[in-house]
Write a protein that binds this DNA or RNA. Structure first.
Lengths: 299, 299
DNA sequence: ATATGCGGTGCAAAAAATGCAACGCCCTTG
DNA sequence: CAAGGGCGTTGCATTTTTTGCACCGCATAT
């Protein structure tokens, strides 16, 4: 939208910390960009940037204004969605921040199902840990967040939450594979692979281990759930994952078993949005579908 | 703000129902305005107006967009307030929709008191009945509403409410002036002056009268509370008003006595804002002050 | 029919935004 | 300590956008 062009320039400058860099990113001259911003500052009544040697940085007024821009942008998207809705086109774009566990099965399936009914709706899916996901919502960079064990709940409005037990992942021929559920101590005694501390699964595991005076000693620590899934096939190690990220039928060489509830309480997989925000139609409808799907997918 | 210029034009066209009239109002040519709007519609993807012979009218998409404009505008004002606040200027503008009863004493006093501390803050006060006041909030035309017995409470968030008994107003030498409180039947039996049905006081009176199988028969019905106050001095009639609109010391020829509670329950004087909205600093602070003042002004 | 009002368009003039080159500044680097 | 490179900023000519004016087609009112 043309009338927000100046704002987008301001955002670009804020992002790159330099007018010249931002100018290049936005395909115009530094001088043009500079003057747009100076003119806006004059009209607005305050400078938006601290000019330091070597670049610029947003000052508090600039931060505030950028926040306004994001609200405006998001509200405009909402209106466009509503308009498309009443023209019968049902266009729209849904932006989701989610945990890795949702990537292999759940989200692709949900998105495909939604798009089958509404081909005009497109999606952006970003992988964010539980801290970042909430920032995304607060800056209107995402409409929805689907995360496991979120950290701060300010500005975060829960749409739906489902308990998820932590499952242990192993090769089908692993010695523990025949047990219907596993004890935490069995896992800690054996080589295991774990996500790093930014992830909810790890957080729950650390907490549970500490409670029994033990601690995790992963042979491999990673931020990639995919790596975990594949690694356990090589070393006969144990991995950890929530069931929504697993599919029994996917790979017959891989099995997963829940951890005993008395060792580790189920965590919460939470679908949420920015508190108080009215979502664009497409996002709201998709949230409804996901919410329904989640409620029938407890584990 | 320049980047909202097109929106302001759209609003002007919507208001006047004609491009040519709007063009004149906004001091440009009909052609220029027309093209601005056509270009915006193209960029936005939908027409905003129904073109009828004899003029134009907003279509639903236009309504939606205008709503976005108002939100944007109001949020920008909020940001400007915050910025002014952190530059130490403490500027701002507060827009209030209120009942007539607040005009003579309460609001002037509150505004003066606030401005004594914050001379940079200016005010707009509009008199609106209880229905209109809520519309004002919904369209962001006002920040605060201070009304007696509001009708619909959707989109209306109550900040503070104080019970207000209905008082009877009469000349000091009126036969009933010596009683500490009056009965409704005494009033109905004598000539009385009342506000029309749009006002909360009248609504309460009608309700109370119907409950005892009677009805009001005002010798003068008016929308002006001021007229009522002055009229009772001339005919020895009875008027009705809530105490916040009265001041014992103001005019010694005038006295007021409460109606018996068993005849008429106190109504609610309510300070409210648009549900979910974050007010500009000045408005929020003023609301706080008014809220405190109200809570010590029950009757 | 004729006249009047409406929204919309072609075209030239006016206004605004842009690119280019250069300036002054500060920090880094030889 | 001087040179160099990066930064934001400014003057000026150029390009792009916006505006005003005259005019069109059209529907209603007279």
């Amino acid at each position: 939208m043309r009338h927000l062009y100046t704002f987008s320039l301001i955002e670009a400058v804020a992002r790159s910390g330099s007018m010249r860099k931002a100018a290049e990113d936005m395909n115009l001259t530094a001088s043009a960009l500079n003057r747009r911003i100076r003119r806006f500052e004059e009209e607005f009544g305050t400078e938006l940037f601290e000019r330091l040697p070597g670049g610029v940085r947003l000052n508090p007024a600039g931060e505030l204004l950028l926040q306004h821009y994001r609200l405006t942008q998001s509200d405009l998207a909402k209106v466009q969605g509503q308009v498309a809705d009443l023209t019968g086109e049902r266009r729209g774009h849904v932006r989701i921040a989610c945990s890795q566990a949702l990537l292999p099965y759940f989200l692709p399936q949900q998105i495909a199902r939604y798009r089958a009914e509404h081909p005009g709706v497109t999606f952006t899916v970003n992988v964010r840990d539980r801290t970042q996901a909430e920032e995304e919502l607060a800056t209107y960079a995402s409409d929805l967040a689907l995360v496991f064990e979120p950290v701060y709940l300010v500005d975060f409005e829960v749409i739906q939450h489902v308990p998820q037990r932590v499952h242990v992942l192993m090769a089908a021929d692993h010695p523990l594979a025949h047990k219907p559920e596993l004890r935490l101590r069995d896992c800690l005694d054996r080589p295991h692979v774990a996500p790093n501390a930014r992830y909810g699964v790890r957080h729950l595991l650390d907490f549970a281990a500490r409670r029994v005076g033990r601690q995790l000693n992963p042979v491999v620590e990673t931020e990639s759930f995919e790596l975990i899934r594949h690694y356990v096939l090589h070393e006969h190690a144990l991995g950890f994952q929530i069931p929504i990220g697993l599919d029994a039928s996917a790979d017959s060489r891989l099995v997963h078993r829940p951890l005993a509830i008395r060792d580790l309480q189920p965590g919460s997989l939470i679908l949420g949005q920015m508190r108080g925000r009215t979502l664009p139609v497409a996002s709201a409808k998709f949230a409804l579908q996901v919410s329904a799907a989640l409620s029938t997918a407890e584990a």
